[in-house]
Design a protein around this nucleic acid. Structure first.
Lengths: 116, 116
DNA sequence: ATCACGTGTAAGAATTGTCTTACGCATGAA
DNA sequence: TTCATGCGTAAGACAATTCTTACACGTGAT
């Protein structure tokens, strides 16, 4: 019954995404309901390009989801909303996560060679 | 009855501490029992100075605790062990954490002015 | 004295992350 | 056409992380 959580690598990305005051605030704000980028930027008091960057990070982590919609007056609006997440962080939870971790400082391509 | 979790700022520090493959591995390893720095470094396969840095970050976040002891043969050994932590991350949990957040890119002094 | 083991810290390179400013394009309304 | 609104992205500055290498100090045993 051990519900499969995110892989170690995914968990790192999620935690890194949440480990930032501004992004935390973004998530908290979105928890109050979906919103589109420009409005959210005004709401929080951040420049739109900056917000855009953070939204990408959050979406890449799977914590929020973006949808491009067309308003009645023909404008393209990008709405973001929270993705349901529920992370339980304990020592033992981490022990399991580490199991599915790719090498610490490992790279993109196929690993060059494993030396014993 | 709402058990007071860490403040928003503290939470950010904790998450940032865990959002790293190596530190995650360190915590997971320590979950198997306390250990001293040099041994832990060999165990994980990292240089001692590097490990030292990460241990500091983890300790600063309150996730691990270090104790300097003297072995029977007179050597100074620094033992680290896990501090009990149990973080539950959900959207609503973050909403509450954000309440106790110091301004995003803000500094020490009193906040300049609140503009509606 | 020298070696093996433990501790710590400092300096610098390489990489990421954060943020601002300045562009680009599209729409509807005036 | 021009303005206000929406979208995105690129370039550069600046700060923070991460990691290596090198050093310093302590002990007990050879």
């Amino acid at each position: 019954m051990t519900k499969a959580g995110p892989s170690g690598d995914e968990l790192v990305v999620m935690l890194a995404a949440l480990a930032n005051p501004l992004r935390m605030r973004i998530v908290a704000t979105l928890a109050g309901g979906r919103d589109y980028v420009s409005h959210l930027a005004r709401e929080i008091g951040v420049s739109r390009p900056l917000l855009h960057m953070h939204l990408q990070r959050l979406e890449a982590a799977g914590l929020i989801v973006g949808t491009l919609e067309l308003s009645s007056d023909g404008k393209a609006m990008k709405y973001y909303e929270i993705a349901d997440f529920d992370l339980h962080l304990t020592a033992s939870a981490l022990v399991e996560a580490v199991t599915t971790l790719t090498r610490p400082g490992s790279e993109k391509g196929p690993a060059p060679e494993e030396q014993s």
